[in-house]
Nucleic acid binder design. Structure first.
Lengths: 351, 351
DNA sequence: TTGTAAGCGTTATCAC
DNA sequence: GTGATAACGCTTACAA
């Protein structure tokens, strides 16, 4: 707390004021601010006392200029799932809490042709130390190349290893999906539908592979009529549900590539009077708020997004965080997703 | 697009390089950057040509230092509703898109005692031009006072006028809730339950008043047993649903102070085999993603949060945005919420 | 261990 | 209209 408030319009004390009050040079004050080792305890104490007394806060713009680097990191996202973005933000802020860093947020339009130029302008203007890319734009290699080009560090978040360990934080989605589907099989399900994610998304491909792996392990296959297209939107879930649940022999379980689509499938089931989970088991992916807000509550896969935020920050700017910030380079860049069991899964009818 | 990329490690061109190339002084370049009127078209053109050729981008840190002001605005929030926060961000970014401003994001912990000190530290460190406060922390007067104290502009977002017009963007929640409830009455509902928001929240009070107004207009009252406490959380909705739907004479309609609680009530209805909307009408508030992800889709109130973001930015920093950014001072600081009709409302049984 | 001088890239002042 | 020169608040040489 500032011992002496300048009040509105009052001038902030500068490093010179502190130096004068403490009776040292401004360079010495600078050393205290930057935790130099070469200082007598006495000098340090005197300076700290002066800082406290004046309520001095170093001007980050001046520091940024002198350091030829600012203290900003950026979060670039184009994510339809708000909760994911916010949880990630939370994690990043957990990580940088005790540092001098601040977080800049930038939504981008994946679809737009101007996207790359927008991001370039943004990065050139703000010159953040680094950028964190959330899926799905994290899958855009041009974006990563652009960061490299501009000398901006980057970390990409993905559902699988999409870059080397110092540039990527990922989760093990495929494994966890496989595990969830194996659970379905072990309950007795044999006819299991699948609602895909959007074409071209790595996350969608990972989830699909996990699903197919589990089926293959059980000696099952995925008939074409049980394989429905999707795009991570609720409406696609509704369409898929209409298609799958109108089959002459409908599936007894459906794995949806995300929660929104699972909610869509579930709505269709309700509309048709198909009881969940008694007559139909449903699994989603994301553990979004929706998962617990629908009825019955949805079994789903939770990815450790907040923790990924922490890890991403540590990997991006280990040198700006405490010495305990390991980050990067090791296998820990892969974090574990977990299967969350709720009420939307049960054995198939007759089991 | 930069005509000449410095590439990684290469040095950014500075104002001096531009000045040298254009054969003018750096002050003249500065004038071009800052759109001074006192310039020959010829000089301006020459400088712009040099800027283009070099791919020069002014260093914001240096500008910030010289201007004694940076180009950051901050968004402070402690909002359980991720979509709201993100939509608001979107609006703010719409507004500042063509300016030099960037957006800093800061989640805060409403509960924590250290909250005020945290925010103070943040504002002192970053010294943003202004801060935008999202509800519920926008309702905290100490926070507004702190901004004033530090010479940081602020705008508070609220569900009602909680500050003067230059410091507040609000919606007309009360009116719209009243309108929605009047709709219920005109369908024939007479026994209407209410699930409150958390104690002490202005938004909760506004919604409650709107509800009571509509009831009073119709000559109805709210019996104590139909008035259930809540806190904007799903679980509270479940509890309220259990209470209201176990009454010997249950309500035929329930207004919930937000969508999450409405989802909770709806889950209970499903569990008890009470058909929505045939046997029970439900209305929520927020138009969150949940509203369309549950079944049947929820009638709810949508507040114009993205537009509020635009307006908040315009009110906060009109001098940094285009001349068309009006902002502040007039009645337009109140934006209209709207009632969104979906499938969760119908006449009561027997009508 | 501390201080001095110079500079980071921009804008303000005030001449011309 | 335009340009020298001195800030802005801090850090990095390098010297003491």
């Amino acid at each position: 707390m500032a011992a002496q408030d300048s009040g509105p319009g009052g001038k902030q004390p500068t490093i010179n004021d502190v130096a004068a009050l403490a009776g040292v040079s401004k360079k010495t004050v600078s050393r205290v601010i930057n935790r130099s080792q070469f200082l007598t305890d006495k000098t340090r104490a005197a300076v700290e006392q002066a800082i406290e007394q004046l309520g001095f806060v170093p001007n980050p713009q001046a520091r940024a200029l002198a350091f030829r680097r600012n203290f900003l990191i950026a979060l670039l996202h184009d994510n339809p799932n708000a909760q994911t973005v916010l949880n990630f933000q939370r994690g990043v802020l957990d990580a940088i809490k005790d540092s001098d860093l601040a977080l800049l947020v930038r939504p981008v339009d994946r679809g737009s042709d101007a996207m790359l130029e927008d991001v370039r302008t943004f990065l050139e203007k703000q010159r953040p130390i680094g950028a964190m890319l959330l899926p799905p734009i994290s899958e855009n290699d041009d974006l990563a190349a652009l960061c490299d080009d501009l000398g901006v560090r980057y970390v990409r978040i993905g559902s699988a290893r999409i870059d080397d360990a110092t540039h990527c934080i990922s989760s093990n989605d495929r494994e966890v999906v496989a595990q969830a589907v194996r659970g379905l099989v072990s309950l007795g399900h044999r006819r299991i539908g699948f609602v895909r994610g959007p074409v071209g998304f790595r996350s969608a491909a990972e989830r699909e592979q996990g699903f197919l792996e589990a089926l293959a392990d059980a000696g099952l296959d995925l008939p074409a009529e049980l394989n429905a297209p999707g795009n991570y939107r609720y409406a696609a879930g509704v369409e898929a549900g209409e298609a799958l649940l109108s089959l002459s022999v409908p599936p007894t379980a459906i794995f949806c590539s995300n929660d929104e689509m699972a909610a869509g499938v579930m709505s269709v089931a309700h509309g048709k009077g198909i009881r969940v989970p008694d007559a139909l088991s449903i699994i989603g992916f994301d553990d979004s708020p929706t998962a617990t807000h629908i009825w019955p509550a949805l079994s789903t896969v939770r990815w450790p997004i907040r923790e990924m935020g922490v890890r991403a920050a540590q990997t991006l700017v280990p040198d700006f965080l405490g010495p305990d910030a390991k980050g990067g380079g090791d296998e820990s860049a892969v974090l574990a997703s977990t299967f969350v069991e709720r009420q939307s899964v049960a054995p198939p009818p007759g089991h």
